[in-house]
Measured scan of single mutants.
Amino acid sequence: LVRYRTISKIPQITLNFVDLKGDPFLASPTSDREIIAPKIKERTHNVTEKVTQVLSLGADVLPEYKLQAPRIHRWTILHYSPFKAVWDWLILLLVIYTAVFTPYSAAFLLKETEEGPPATECGYACQPLAVVDLIVDIMFIVDILINFRTTYVNANEEVVSHPGRIAVHYFKGWFLIDMVAAIPFDLLIFGSGSEELIGLLKTARLLRLVRVARKLDRYSEYGAAVLFLLMCTFALIAHWLACIWYAIGNMEQPHMDSRIGWLHNLGDQIGKPYNSSGLGGPSIKDKYVTALYFTFSSLTSVGFGNVSPNTNSEKIFSICVMLIGSLMYASIFGNVSAIIQRLYSGTARYHTQMLRVREFIRFHQIPNPLRQRLEEYFQHAWSYTNGIDMNAVLKGFPECLQADICLHLNRSLLQHCKPFRGATKGCLRALAMKFKTTHAPPGDTLVHAGDLLTALYFISRGSIEILRGDVVVAILGKNDIFGEPLNLYARPGKSNGDVRALTYCDLHKIHR
Rank of each mutant, 00 (worst) to 15 (best):
A167R: 03
S308H: 03
R429G: 03
V180G: 11
L201D: 01
I332N: 06
F333V: 04
W174C: 03
H264S: 10
L431N: 01
N335Q: 15
F140M: 01
C243K: 01
M256P: 11
I284G: 01
Y97Q: 01
Y246T: 01
K395F: 04
I141V: 07
M433C: 10
P442M: 04
L241W: 01
R358Y: 03
T76G: 01
R71W: 05
L236S: 01
A440R: 07
V302E: 01
Q341H: 14
D268S: 04
A403Y: 01
V210C: 09
P419C: 12
R349Y: 12
A155G: 14
L134H: 05
Q402A: 03
L401V: 10
H264L: 01
L374P: 03
T150Q: 01
L92V: 05
L229V: 05
F101M: 14
E196M: 11
I405M: 01
T437N: 04
E157Y: 04
G193A: 06
A224T: 12
D444I: 08
I77L: 05
Y350C: 01
F101D: 01
E375N: 08
L431T: 02
R371T: 03
V210Q: 13
W240C: 01
P117A: 13
A213C: 09
F296W: 07
F420M: 05
S81T: 07
S277L: 05
R218G: 05
S301V: 01
L409C: 03
L92M: 06
V226Q: 13
K172I: 04
S298E: 01
A291P: 01
I138L: 12
A119F: 05
A69S: 07
G199S: 13
L374H: 01
A69C: 04
H448Y: 14
C417R: 06
L67W: 13
Y124L: 14
P282Y: 01
Y329M: 08
D257T: 08
Y293F: 11
I366A: 02
A381N: 13
L206R: 01
P282H: 05
L129T: 06
V132N: 01
R211N: 08
S277N: 15
G261R: 01
I198S: 05
A291H: 01
L206E: 01
G422C: 12
M322N: 03
K172P: 01
L323Q: 01
I270D: 01
V168A: 09
G303E: 01
P398N: 07
L129E: 05
A213W: 03
I405G: 02
Q365A: 10
A106V: 09
G173M: 03
I260S: 04
V393Y: 03
R211Q: 09
I77C: 05
Q68P: 08
G261C: 01
G173P: 01
P70D: 15
